[in-house]
Amino acid sequence: MDPRSEVLLRQADLFQRPLLLAGLPADDLLGSLPQASGWTWHAGDQAALESRFAGRSHFGTTPPEVAFGAAVLFLPKSRELADYLLKALAARLPGGELFLVGEKRGGIEGAAKQLAAFGTPRKLDSARHCQLWKVDIGEAPAVPDLEALAQRYRLDLADGPLDVVTLPGVFSHGRLDRGTSLLLEQLDGLPSGHLLDFGCGAGVLGAALKRRYPQSRLTLLDVDAFAVASSRLTLAANGLEAEVIAADGIHGAPEGLAAIVSNPPFHQGVHTHYQASEDLLRAARRHLVAGGELRLVANSFLKYPPLIEQHLGPCRLLAEGDGFRIYSARR
């Protein structure tokens, strides 16, 4: 059981009612709170929760249309995302109660101050290196407009300007990260056919690929609902069309791909995870056609070439700089 869930269950009497658990972990919490529903923006967590608690968890960027008189937000890493989520929940809770739970090292004490926008926050519990806070909602705020919270910036690329739209919580919100910047310079000479932007984030690489290879079919994939929504906004801002899907890792990707292009994710919450990236290296072969190419950017310290060569083929170093390297391998 996640330690944040354990803290909630120490106060289980407070939660034996119609309740929305926002950003909940994929553990057994729903089984202990029979009147609760879940809301997640992580496709992997949604799949796990749906398999065990069918119909009780919902995936997306807005609260589900289920009845609840109280809500618990599991604190996300991004302060901007937390602000949006708290407002979205509070808007549905006039006269209700809003709880915030999170790890101390995740910044729960500072984040609890965000509850002050709705009333007087109170700390209810502190255990398992986590804290639980509560605020009574007096006058509910207006429903926040998620798209109005987007940050937009323009990239001056060799084939013209590219407009990027990022939503709160999306990787590299409001700016171009160094790894993607380096990979954008190494998009020439990809095989023709179905292209995949794996871990698409705000859709920077995907949009650049679609413009560079307009006749190619393009799919963008990310585990996060806010990233999927951002990618769709970025494509629309540039007059481009492509398939955008939510899936938990490369196993949710199409097969028969001519190329996989990626700035693969390795951060999740306050912890660091490399699983999605390593799964990509191990499984890319099954998704690529013969001669298909994997091209990705990675931090220089990550020992990816041996994995690439073990599971795909000879690994080439295309470029390096600013602490990153571009690797390529063909099936």
Rank of each mutant, 00 (worst) to 15 (best):
S78C: 09
A127D: 12
D27P: 12
L24S: 06
T61L: 09
K210P: 05
S37M: 12
G169D: 11
L220H: 05
L240V: 07
A88D: 06
P63D: 02
H273E: 15
E255Y: 02
R330L: 11
A202V: 09
E6M: 13
S78Q: 11
R316I: 03
D222P: 08
I308V: 15
A227T: 05
F74I: 13
P305C: 12
A202M: 09
E109F: 02
L296K: 06
Q46W: 15
L296F: 14
L14W: 02
I108L: 08
V289L: 14
S172Y: 04
L280Y: 01
I326Q: 03
F266L: 12
Y84M: 08
G60P: 07
C200Q: 02
A47W: 00
L190W: 04
W133T: 14
S262R: 03
H58P: 09
P264I: 10
L317G: 06
R295S: 13
V7D: 00
V7I: 14
G206R: 06
E109P: 01
G249P: 14
G321V: 10
L307G: 04
P191T: 02
S51V: 00
Q16E: 13
Q114K: 13
D45F: 11
L115C: 06
R105F: 00
Y153N: 10
R154G: 01
P306G: 09
G193T: 06
P25H: 01
A88H: 05
L89S: 06
R52Q: 14
D177T: 11
A253Q: 12
G38R: 03
C315I: 10
H273K: 13
G119S: 05
E255L: 13
V228G: 07
Q151M: 10
L205P: 11
A208G: 10
P121G: 08
H273N: 15
A127T: 06
R178W: 00
A148N: 07
L182M: 07
A276V: 13
L19F: 06
E255I: 13
D125T: 02
A26E: 08
R282C: 10
V7C: 10
A329R: 07
R178G: 04
L205N: 05
A67K: 03
H271K: 15
R217G: 15
A90Q: 11
P121H: 04
A82Q: 12
L195R: 01
A47S: 14
A148F: 01
L240D: 07
K134E: 10
A111G: 06
A259S: 12
C315E: 08
A236L: 03
G44E: 02
F59K: 13
A70I: 02
A236C: 01
T61S: 11
Q268V: 14
W39H: 09
G252H: 00
L157W: 09
R105G: 01
R92G: 07
G138L: 12
I137Q: 01
A43V: 06
R217V: 11
A43K: 12
L155N: 09
A142R: 14
L233A: 15
Q11W: 04
T234L: 05
S172A: 15
D145N: 15
V170Y: 04
L8T: 04
Q186A: 12
E185G: 13
S32L: 13
R295H: 10
G106H: 00
H251C: 09
V164E: 06
A36F: 06
A43D: 09
V289M: 11
G23P: 12
A117R: 15
